[in-house]
Design a protein around this nucleic acid. Structure first.
Lengths: 212, 212, 212, 212
DNA sequence: TATGAATGAGACTTCATTCAT
DNA sequence: GATGAATGAAGTCTCATTCAT
């Protein structure tokens, strides 16, 4: 509208990028909500674009594909989850009792699933159809597993050679779904399941780390 | 009803129903394979019909819906799984060590997932889109949970009042996905994961039943 | 089932025919109700057969076609309508005032439409698609027109050569739809419309028969 | 908005909307012809699209439904009919004899039915299946009835309180079908029926307005 | 770069009618 | 004659993606 001789044009790019970022986020927000509510297949790209108030053409400039939206969601989830986990994985914590660590890990995870119901919901459904997404999830879990393995290794008394990668893998892949399922349950039962998840994790870990 | 003289070939009785059942099974077999290979959404009813060598019209006489095929698969899985499990849930077994019971339970489950890769694969994807299927799966798991709870209760020393329903719930919902994930892994790692699943289950149970 | 040497077989045919007639009537009744409720196109022959408790195969023995059912309905309507009209078209009535004749004619017609809402409803919809039905309706109306023309001619004073065929045609084709439409109106308005139909018919006739 | 320098070729503005409108019209034209020729049910949306040289996807962008095409037709008919009727309903005409008014009204109506054979043809068939269309037709008639009632009221001598709404209703609902039926008749008979329609209408009106 | 009307392959499902039993 | 499972052509409608403007 006001392009007066294009004098001071250096500063102009930013707002553009900012607007783009805003749009991408709106698309991701809307897509998340719709995927959770109606499922991936039942959600159309046009519907996402309309609700996000972004022209469909623009949507396809940000995301090459419908699948790319799921990937975008995944990337965002990974960042968010990693941020929360970062608070937990510091050296300080290695000194606390194992049970405390487990409790906090599970509380954080449970809260995250509660805050972002799309996390598992989307992965569950897209599995198989969208290999890239599956990979992305695996990567997300892999990061978590590595972090977890590292922290656990710090507690090792050194007596037994424990493969913490596997232990962490088991915990992530077993506790994750359990917490996910707990979300759909009634308040009281949900609380109990979180407690049980802690017990499950802890008793398993203690079978490897009897002295912790 | 009165077939006294035709001793041979009892199999060919009720040619109608027999042929129908055969067709239904073929449809289910083909659908299972295609769903696992390409996903639910990417599989067309016409393709199922063609590969099952059943006219599309007949397919729709047996199944009112595309979704009904998934339900049919679910029912069949439930029956199959229940049959295998039945071998395990007898009174004899209550006398064996807990570890033996857990090992057998997990071996059977793992084997079942291996034999019927559609079991979880389909549930994962259709979740949310086909509520009936979700219900069916929940019911299937509920049955398993009840069975498991009953067996565990038989080992109870009576000292502590343990809610075996919850214990069984946790085991089923945590171990199930873990075993499912193990299927996609390399041979050696898969074996290790099964071992870990046993350890996970056993250590959890022992936290409730220290004397077993 | 009991065909004991087929001894006294002469009397047996009747019940069969009776049962057939019963079935045909049931089919017609159900078809009428369904056509009126859902329209011709939306009603399936299988649905008719099921509700009439007649095997679909039998239905197709009585009626060669879906269209044949509409024709059957038409024939039945014609008979019923003709029966009612017969009460009116006797020589006695020619002596009564014209207004009385017109009033009775319209009352009978209105009542008939009320009793058999399928009469017009079906014709309206099938028009164009099923020429045979259109013919059948035309024939029905033609019969009515001829009857009406005959009765009117009996009142002719002989002065003017009036083409009663045309007069009757006009009355049937104009008053019929008007009465039909009146059925869907509220009670009070409906009564008024019937009154107006009588006035319309009478004033038209009086323009030809000023002395009646 | 500011097109000051481009004086020539105003017509080519808004090429988008213009092309769309053209397409919509072509669809409507083709649909009308096909509906009249083969009936609503026998006409496929793909056939309409093909003959209108519009991709099926575009057809469904303009019309959400097959039924929506009939509605579109209805709207167009209503506009067209109203335009023709507008010529008749001016104050001047109230001064002419009633017979002249009636004659012109019926001539216009008859001509309209002749020009647009789809008008009644489509309403007849779709009745019941497409409530919206029925409503639309009722509305069209209601408009006509209101116009007619207004004009008639202008002739009222004031002596008797006549409900012209009802009079107009009767005329529209009785004469309309009669004229419609006349279209299918042979030339000579058709002319005669139009004459009779005028007589029917006039004698009815004169029974209310003896002095006109 | 931004837009959104346009595209058309192809999915699901129906149903009048038949004919083997 | 009676039955009803079987058939498959064909219909309506969707939606991811493009590209002219």
């Amino acid at each position: 509208m006001s392009d007066k001789l294009s004098s001071v044009s250096t500063i102009r790019r930013k707002p553009h990028q900012a607007r783009s970022q805003e749009r991408v986020n709106r698309i991701l927000d809307v897509a998340e909500a719709l995927f959770v509510a109606q499922g991936y297949a039942a959600t159309t790209t046009n519907e996402i674009a309309k609700q996000a108030q972004v022209p469909i053409g623009s949507l396809y400039q940000f995301f090459s594909d419908k699948k790319a939206i799921v990937q975008g969601l995944t990337v965002r989830y990974n960042q968010l989850f990693h941020e929360r986990l970062a608070l937990l994985n510091n050296a300080e914590l290695a000194k606390l009792p194992l049970s405390t660590y487990v409790e906090q890990l599970i509380d954080i995870t449970s809260q995250f699933f509660d805050d972002y119901p799309g996390y598992y919901a989307i992965f569950m459904e897209v599995q198989g159809d969208v290999p890239e997404v599956q990979e992305a999830e695996d990567n997300a879990d892999t990061k978590l597993i590595t972090d977890l393995a590292t922290t656990l290794a710090q507690r090792d008394t050194g007596k037994d050679a424990v493969d913490y990668e596997i232990v962490a893998f088991v915990l992530v892949k077993a506790i994750g779904p359990l917490l996910w399922i707990s979300l759909g349950q009634e308040q009281e039962f949900q609380q109990r399941l979180i407690l049980e998840a802690k017990r499950l994790a802890l008793s398993y870990l203690q079978s490897y780390l009897p002295s912790s």
